[in-house]
Amino acid sequence: MAPPRANTPTPDAIAVLLSGLIGRKLTTKPGKPWIPSTSAPSAIGVFKHDAGDIAAVVVFDVAFAAHASASLVLIPPGVANESARAGKLSESLLENVGEIFNVCAQLFVSNDAPHVTLKSVVVCPPPVPKDLVPLFAKPGARVDFEAAIPGYGGGRIAVLV
């Protein structure tokens, strides 16, 4: 039997959730599908059902991850800009991204859908972990958009279910 599918959130639902968490109203625009790679460094939140199968991933490119992380705890935007330029997240920025992903779990939850929790946060590069490759290759559904955080910067967000 195929594992149960998680809900697929809309860009609006994601933006509303992130705006509430960050305390700034995100602006969004449609984006093209992309896959994390060496040339597209990213942070990936991996969400699993209680049975252990992968339910969904939320992917922030390094620019959005840096700006969202910095804005969450009011780190100056310059730190996020520097991180985005370098294509890397410091340990503290990554920790904040983890908390953002943690809250994102509720995007996949409804009373009639299986329970979903954040199980891990991975960064790319190195390459996407092998167990995520099938989902990136052939997701059941995906949402791609760009988001900007007022007072900070923005970047790309993808959700694959």
Binding site: N102, V103, C104, A105, Q106, V109, S110, N111, H115
Partner: peptide, 9 residues
Amino acid sequence: FVTSESSDK
């Protein structure tokens, strides 16, 4: 509770 869990359960 202040949590990211949101379901009725």
